[in-house]
Simulated scan of single mutants.
Amino acid sequence: MNKYRDKSDFEINKAVVIALGKVIGIRPDSNIIYLIGGDELIEFNPCNNPADAMPIINEYGISLIYQEGEFQFATNDGNIECSISNPLKAAMIIFLMMKDAENEKV
Rank of each mutant, 00 (worst) to 15 (best):
Y60T: 02
M97Y: 05
E43T: 00
A90Y: 07
K105V: 01
P46M: 02
R27T: 03
M98C: 05
G61P: 09
G38N: 09
K89G: 02
V17E: 11
N2Q: 13
E68R: 14
E81N: 12
F95V: 13
N58W: 00
A15D: 08
Y60R: 05
I33L: 12
A101C: 10
A53N: 12
I18V: 13
N79R: 03
D39T: 04
A101H: 00
K22Q: 13
R5I: 12
N45W: 12
I26R: 08
N31Y: 03
N76P: 08
P87I: 04
R5N: 14
M1S: 15
I80Q: 11
K14C: 00
G61V: 05
D52I: 08
D9P: 06
E40M: 13
N103E: 15
K3E: 14
C82A: 04
A15S: 11
S30W: 01
D52W: 13
E70Q: 04
S83Y: 03
I36T: 09
K7W: 01
M54L: 09
I36Y: 10
P87D: 00
S83F: 02
L64H: 09
F10I: 12
L88H: 11
M1Q: 15
K3L: 14
I62S: 09
S63D: 15
G69P: 05
S83H: 05
K22R: 14
F73G: 11
M1G: 13
D29Q: 03
I93Q: 10
E70M: 06
D39C: 05
S85Y: 00
I57T: 08
I32N: 11
I24W: 01
Y34T: 08
N13D: 13
I93N: 05
N13R: 04
E40G: 00
I80P: 07
K7L: 15
P87Y: 02
I32L: 14
I93P: 08
P28I: 13
F71G: 12
K105W: 04
F44K: 07
N49P: 03
N13A: 08
N45K: 15
R27I: 06
P50V: 02
I24H: 01
R27V: 03
Q72E: 11
N49A: 03
N45T: 10
K14T: 05
V106P: 07
G38Q: 05
M97S: 06
N103T: 07
D100R: 02
L41D: 10
K3V: 08
M98Q: 15
S85D: 12
A90T: 05
S83E: 09
M92F: 09
K105D: 10
S8R: 10
I42R: 14
L41E: 04
I62G: 08
E43K: 15
Y60K: 00
K89T: 03
S8F: 13
I32K: 01
I56D: 01
N31P: 02
F10S: 01
P28R: 12
E102R: 07
K99G: 06
